[in-house]
Amino acid sequence: MTETPPAPTAPLRARAEIDLAALRANVRALRDRAPGAALMAVVKADAYGHGAVPCARAAVEAGATWLGTATPEEALALRAAGIPASVRVMCWLWTPGGPWRRAIEEDIDVSVSAMWALGEVVEAARAAGRPARVQLKADTGLGRNGCQPGPDWDELVGAALAAEAAGLLRVTGLWSHFACADEPGHPSIAAQLTVFRAMLAEAEGRGVRPEVRHIANSPATLTLPASHFDLVRTGVSVYGISPSPEIGTPADLGLRPVMTLSASLALVKQVPGGHGVSYGHHYVTPGRTTLGLVPLGYADGVPRHASGAGPVLVGGKWRTVAGRIAMDQFVVDLGGDEPQVGSRAVLFGPGDGGEPTAEDWAQAAGTIAYEIVTRIGSRVPRVHVNG
């Protein structure tokens, strides 16, 4: 099993510090929210930009018994890193010709939403000489992946039961996904729960005996106990981010943001009033001032849409991106202050040190905090601490 590398001691251009102690505390807090259900930590998209393998291990240490990924490649990478078969791993985004056999051989639960996928799973199970672990996904109203209720569900359940009777698969789960759980009280939430219960009843009435039934994502885990069933799938909340401001801040929810993104100032210089800053001169200095150069840009995942609005903590004060965010760098107006070159500029973190949060950047860019952390690119080293 590969160990988490030690934090580098040399100065870095930029770093995304990942607090694994905070992640473990978040998992424990989420388990407390759903005490009657097992917990899946979703580590897709490199754990929402936080580093899949270290975060997966930390989540398991804190009591997660399932790990979730989107793609089969993500799931297989967890097994290759030494995540044992005693920890269930599920992946749900398949396309024709995917690595079904490898997933079966690595004890990965695969999601099936249509007959084409079931057919490929059955053939892969024959080739592997062992049954596949299959979870049937129901489209209860999201309109994305999943099998429609009615004849399509009837056919899929019947075919899965026939393959199970032939020893080619085991139906380990029945599941679905909410469309609007981050909007408490939205009428679609109750409607989807009703459809899900009906589709469960139909499948179980025909003989399906799943290990787990699940529909709750992070917001439903936090706000809707009736949706917890046997398993909750927690994604963004594992990383200490609120699913939406309507539900509350991370502190309101007992969570702590895990990622802190910072950089070392690459240049500090005085400029006169009337000086244009960055492409297009969308910012012009109102008077003599000091500019600081932050060596991060949209190639690193800093959203260009936050030009002129993104907040940064430098020298204990909030600054704002001055002008456009470029590919590799952006500028902040330091208002005459003169911090040393190499001083730390913090784009976001937990917020308790006065720094902005990922939600602050989401508001500045007109997006959601999920995107802010997930888009931080591979040029930014992840430094895992408290491992």
Rank of each mutant, 00 (worst) to 15 (best):
S86M: 04
L39F: 02
G97P: 08
G97E: 08
T65R: 10
S113C: 04
V60I: 12
R57N: 09
T69E: 13
G63Q: 06
G82H: 14
P96T: 09
A77F: 08
A64S: 06
R102K: 13
W116P: 04
A85P: 01
N145Q: 13
G98R: 10
A124R: 06
A45P: 01
E123D: 14
R88T: 14
R144D: 10
D46N: 15
N145E: 14
M115K: 03
G68S: 09
A62E: 02
A103Q: 10
C147I: 05
V122N: 01
G98Y: 03
A125N: 01
G63L: 01
E73Q: 15
Q135K: 13
I104V: 15
S113Q: 07
W100I: 04
A62P: 09
A41I: 02
V43R: 05
G63I: 00
E120N: 12
G49C: 08
A56T: 04
C147R: 07
D139H: 04
V53K: 12
N145K: 08
W100A: 10
Q135G: 14
D46V: 02
P84M: 10
E74W: 11
A77I: 03
L136N: 02
L142F: 06
S113T: 13
A80S: 15
V134F: 04
G51M: 13
K44V: 13
E73D: 14
P84L: 12
R88C: 04
L118I: 11
A41W: 01
R102I: 02
W100E: 03
T71I: 05
A45Y: 04
A85W: 08
E61K: 03
G98Q: 11
P72A: 12
A117R: 01
T95R: 13
D107M: 10
M115N: 09
M40L: 13
I83S: 14
P54Y: 07
D46E: 15
P131Q: 09
W94R: 04
I104T: 07
A38E: 13
A62N: 09
G51P: 00
W92F: 15
D32C: 01
A127R: 08
A80L: 06
T95F: 06
G51A: 11
M115P: 01
P35V: 10
E74V: 06
S111D: 08
A114K: 08
R144S: 07
E123K: 12
R102E: 15
G68P: 00
A117L: 07
G36N: 12
T95W: 03
D109V: 15
R133D: 03
